[in-house]
Amino acid sequence: MADRRRALAACLALAAGLPAAAAAPRASAPGGSAPARSVAIENMQFTPATLQVRRGERIVWSNRDLVPHTVTARDGSFDSHAIAPGATWSFVATQAGALDYACLYHPTMVAHLDVR
């Protein structure tokens, strides 16, 4: 019995933990600002390379490389300019749509934003 209860508790903890991460972006803070979503800039790549966000969500890019990068929309709707190694840059997506972005310095670094 105790074992079953422990197993159930573990399942509940898991169930509570996993969707919490997935659902977090949907939760709105009382002030109106949504929690931030993260994109890592590391090993000359954006990770994840495709990110789905909701309008109003803040996206934070963290440069973990040793060289500067930019986060620049192909359509010109946003441009971080140089993000120094170790620094971050954030942007709030306000318009729904699909956006391709890239690092202006390193043409092989491309990624995609899907704002819903």
Binding site: M44, L66, H106, T108
Partner: peptide, 19 residues
């Protein structure tokens, strides 16, 4: 670790130069 970390930048430079 520093050299391992910097390697992808050198690979990207090589690809860029080849392009």
């Amino acid at each position: 670790a520093l050299m391992v970390k910097v390697r992808p930048a050198f690979v990207a430079h090589l690809e860029h130069a080849r392009h």
